[in-house]
Simulated scan of single mutants.
Amino acid sequence: MLKKIKHLSLAIPLMVGAISVQAKPLSLERIFDDPSLSGKSPVQLKFSPDGSRVTYLQGKSDDYNRYDLWEYNLKDNTNRVLVDSAKLFSGPENLSDEEKARRERQRIFGKGILEYKWSKDGKALLFPLNGDLYYYDLASDKSKKLTDTEAFETDARFSPKGNYVSFIREQNLYALELESGKEIQLSKDGGGVIKNGMAEFVAQEEMSRMTGYWWSGDETKIAYTRVDETPVKEAIRNEIYADEV
C-alpha cells in the first residue's frame, strides 16, 4: 500500500509538468476573437407542442455566427439538423434598415436562421431567412419558400388554427393562406411615417414588446396598431463607423 502511494505522488508532478509545457498564454485578443472559447452554444431552445423533441439554433462548426435549425429527439436521444441555412441561401444577407433596428432591439446577432416558430399542431415550423419566409414540414423533412420578394417580411407567425401565416412587409400587415398560397394585404397606407402592425421604438426598447398585431382565436380578425409619426420633427443623425459616416 505504501509503495502504491509513493508511485502516485511521483506521478502528479510529472503530469503538472506536462500540462505546463503544452499550455499557451491566453491573450486579450483571443478572449474576444472567433471562434468563441465556449464553443457553439445552442440558443432559442423550445419544446415541440407534443413534447417529443427540443428544437434549437446552433452555429456551424466552421462559422459559429451562421445558425442552422436543429432538433434533439427525446425518444431516440439523437441530435440532427432539420434545416441547413446554407442550402437554402448561401449569399451575403442584405438586411433592411428596419430589420437591422429590429434585431438590435431583440439583441439578435448573427446570420442564417435566427428565429423560428412552431405551428400549434406541432407539424411545421416557420422561419425567416434573408428577408423571405420558409415553411418546414416535419413529416416530409422539407422546406418550402412562402415569399419571394425584394422587400423584407418580418414578425411572421402562424394564426391560432394554423391556416394562415401573418407578417409585416413595407410597414403593412399581410396574411398568407397556407393551403392556397394566396396573400391578403390587410393594411394599405403603411410607409414613411405610417407604420401598421409594428411596435414603435419605445414599445420595443423600453417595454420589450416586439409586435404590433394580434390574432383573434377564431382567425376571423386581427387587431393591430397604427403608428403615425407625422408630428415628430425629423433631424439629421450621423452614424459614425470605422470606414464611413
Rank of each mutant, 00 (worst) to 15 (best):
L8C: 11
E71Y: 05
K60S: 08
F32N: 09
S61T: 11
N94M: 13
M15D: 02
P25E: 09
W118Y: 15
A18M: 11
P92F: 06
T78E: 14
K87I: 05
P128M: 04
S61N: 11
L88P: 00
A86F: 10
P35M: 06
D63Y: 05
N94T: 13
G51P: 03
K87V: 09
P92S: 02
Q22W: 09
L126F: 04
G122L: 06
E29D: 09
D33W: 01
K60D: 13
W118I: 01
I108E: 13
E98Y: 10
I31S: 03
D50F: 04
S48N: 03
L14G: 02
D121L: 03
E99C: 06
G51C: 06
F127A: 00
Q22P: 00
E98N: 12
E93R: 05
A124G: 03
G59E: 09
K40I: 06
P13H: 04
P49D: 00
R107V: 11
M15I: 15
L88I: 04
L26I: 14
G91N: 10
Y116I: 04
T55I: 14
Y64T: 13
F32T: 10
R66I: 12
S119T: 07
F89K: 07
Y135T: 01
W70Y: 14
F47S: 07
N77I: 07
Y136P: 00
I19V: 14
L10A: 11
Y136G: 00
K120Y: 09
D137P: 01
R102G: 09
G51E: 04
R30K: 08
F127K: 00
N73I: 09
S27C: 03
L125N: 02
L95C: 02
Y72W: 07
L129F: 04
A139S: 12
Y64M: 14
N130T: 12
G39S: 02
N77C: 08
A139E: 12
L45I: 05
I19P: 00
H7L: 13
L57C: 05
V21R: 06
I12L: 14
P35A: 05
N65Y: 15
I19M: 12
L10M: 11
M15P: 01
Y116W: 13
N130I: 07
Y72Q: 02
D137L: 03
L82I: 01
R105H: 08
P35D: 07
R30F: 00
S20T: 11
I19Y: 11
P35V: 05
N77L: 14
L69Y: 03
L69F: 02
R103M: 13
G112W: 09
L45E: 07
L126H: 00
E104Y: 15
L133T: 01
D62W: 08
L133K: 01
D97K: 14
G112R: 10
G131N: 07
Q44H: 06
N65L: 14
S38N: 08
T78R: 11
L126D: 02
G112S: 06
R105N: 13
A86W: 08
K3E: 13
S48G: 04
F47I: 01
D137H: 10
D97L: 14
L28D: 11
A124T: 06
D137Q: 10
N94E: 14
S96H: 10
A23L: 10
L14I: 15
D68E: 08
S41V: 11
N77M: 11
A101T: 15
L125S: 01
S119K: 06
P49M: 02
A124K: 12
Y116F: 15
S36R: 09
D137F: 01
L88D: 00
L88E: 05
Q106S: 04
K123N: 12
L37C: 00
